[in-house]
Simulated scan of single mutants.
Amino acid sequence: MTSPIAPFDAEYLVDPYVVHRKLRESAPVHRVALPDGTEAWLVTREADVRRGLADSRLSSDKRSSSTGYRGFALPQVFEAHLLNTDAPDHTRLRRLVAHAFTRRRIESLQDRIQAEADRLLDRIAGREQADLIAEFAAPLPLTVINDLLGVANDDRERFRVWTNTLLAPDPNEPRQAKQAVVGMERFIVDLVAAKRAAPADDFLSDLIAVRDAGDGLTESELVSMAFLILWAGYQNTVEFIGKAVLALLDNPEQLAALRKTAPSVSDSAVEELLRYAHPSQFAIRRFPTEDITIGDVRIPVGETVLLGTASANRDPLFVPNPETLDLWRQEKSHLALGHGIHYCLGAPLARLETRIAIGSLLYRFPRIELAIPRDQIRWRSSFREHGLHALPLFVGD
């Protein structure tokens, strides 16, 4: 077996799409070394990634790993969620969670999202500069997700600090990440207990009702789902709003056209931004339950497989001119939110937040510009998520 390549270097952290293109053009599957020293198989092309996402032989359950894969060092109580399970457990969990994650509940959040977006933009108005991440892209989804789960206002700042620590851990302070995980575990366990004692009209209270009605949601599954909704709903939305705005600034003709429609943002524009700028570079890791062949490459049972969704979304065999942002592109298909049984349950909420956030920003500040040179933008040190540390903008008239 050939030695693995190490593609996740400094160049990758700045622009992973350049690296993805090189890998995609050279082979459909690569054996790669991950930053933590472990190895994986990276699938690069859209057709193979799409098939892989729907292939029941590719398990999401860590117990299917033959190499002792651990990934993030999370408490066991956080592990029993949708992204770590296969059918039939996944089918049962998704059905139970979908019972609480209804279209009615998502639609009911629209006015609250709009009000919070307006409030945050009001705080920026009248100034020359603002950091889009710290002052808008981060607090907006934090408010939305905490509203969805029914987290009290006084508790939200603690969660934000823990999440930021886990998103960009300080290698010189390893204890900070461990403390953040411990703090988050206690917080969510206590939150579940509080909601059980005093239910309200929120998503978490609905999940507790499902659990206590004896429909098959265990206590660990309940806590794990609360964690997944908090983490994924916050992290991905923060990073996506920031990257989407930067993509528009990088494409002034597209930005000018979108400004003319603000505060309305079309479904077509949202789907193209998801394809072009979604922060997730891979689907959740998979483990073959038998020896399989992808792109003429044999992958042994139990080894780690990374399905490159970001690479797939820019595959020229899948979409014409994939490196071009075209908000009115006719082909709207992409893999940014997954495919198959693990398709993102929160996709309607992600789309709603994106439409409101970007439309409101462009309507309120029609002349936003980068406040620093483009090459001074700093990216988070994660090979899995391509996210911004900050996005300083000129917002004044």
Rank of each mutant, 00 (worst) to 15 (best):
M1F: 10
I5P: 00
P7V: 00
Y12V: 02
Y17N: 13
H20R: 00
K22P: 02
R24N: 11
P28M: 12
R31W: 09
R31H: 14
V32N: 00
E46L: 08
V49S: 09
A54M: 10
S59R: 01
D61Q: 11
S64N: 13
S65H: 00
S66W: 03
Y69D: 12
L74E: 02
Q76W: 10
Q76C: 05
E79Y: 04
E79W: 08
L82K: 06
L82W: 04
N84C: 08
D86K: 09
T91K: 01
L96G: 09
V97K: 00
V97M: 05
A100F: 03
R103Y: 09
R104Q: 14
I106M: 14
L109G: 08
I113W: 08
I113Y: 09
L120Y: 12
E128F: 09
A134Y: 07
L142Q: 08
I145G: 07
L148Y: 03
G150D: 10
A152Y: 06
T165D: 02
T165E: 02
A168T: 12
R175A: 15
Q176D: 14
E185P: 07
F187D: 00
F187G: 08
A193E: 14
D201M: 03
D206T: 11
D215C: 11
T218G: 11
A226R: 05
W231N: 15
Q235C: 11
V238K: 07
K243Q: 15
K243P: 03
A244F: 01
A247K: 07
L248H: 02
L249E: 10
D250I: 01
A256W: 01
A257Y: 04
A257H: 11
R259C: 09
A269N: 06
V270E: 00
V270W: 05
L273M: 08
R275Q: 07
H278C: 11
Q281L: 13
F282E: 02
R286K: 15
P288E: 06
P288N: 04
E290I: 10
D291M: 10
I294K: 07
I294V: 15
D296I: 10
I299G: 00
T304Y: 01
L306F: 12
L306S: 02
L307G: 02
L307S: 01
G308A: 11
G308H: 07
T309L: 14
T309P: 04
T309C: 06
D315S: 04
F318P: 04
N321W: 03
L325G: 10
L327T: 01
Q330C: 06
K332A: 13
A336Q: 02
A336Y: 07
L337F: 12
G338D: 00
H339A: 13
H339W: 14
I341T: 15
P348Q: 12
L349R: 10
T354D: 01
R367I: 08
E369I: 06
E369A: 14
A371P: 05
P373V: 03
R374H: 12
R374W: 05
R380M: 12
R380L: 14
S382W: 08
F383I: 09
R384K: 09
F394P: 00
V395F: 05
